[in-house]
């Protein structure tokens, strides 16, 4: 399991715009770099990030080889109802990680 830092409010007023920040530990090996022995290191990147809110997708990003290691993604959504936000990172070599956070909307 990769280390993840998630930053979002635990509660929010209905209709408020909330900011979500995510950071995940990942090498984002581009597939273009030579390794110690001169041969190209195989690509190993996160290709997609998704956030869903009570099952409905609210944000998605496609990641490319030019993105640095340990990618930081920040975005906003509207607090519509209490429930669960789920965050999924997917990538090369069957990389897949999901984290969830509950939010109370009042």
């Amino acid at each position: 399991m990769a280390r993840v830092l998630l930053n979002l409010p635990r509660s929010a007023a209905k209709g408020a715009v909330i900011e979500i920040r995510t950071l995940i530990m990942h090498p984002m090996e581009s597939g273009f770099r030579p390794g110690m022995n001169g041969s190209i290191l195989p690509r190993d990147i996160i290709t997609r990030f998704r956030c869903s809110y009570n099952g409905e997708e609210v944000f998605r990003a496609e990641l490319s080889p030019a993105i640095a290691a340990n990618p930081f993604i920040s975005f906003t959504t509207v607090a519509t109802e209490s429930g669960t936000l789920s965050f999924t990172w997917e990538g090369d070599n069957d990389f897949r990680q999901t984290e969830t956070r509950d939010i109370a909307v009042t």
């Binding site: 930053n7 920040r21 920040s74």
Partner: peptide, 13 residues
């Protein structure tokens, strides 16, 4: 910003 500083990933570890 602790939520943007990648060093915090190692902190957590």
């Amino acid at each position: 910003d602790d939520s943007a500083n990648p060093g915090m990933l190692w902190m957590q570890e």
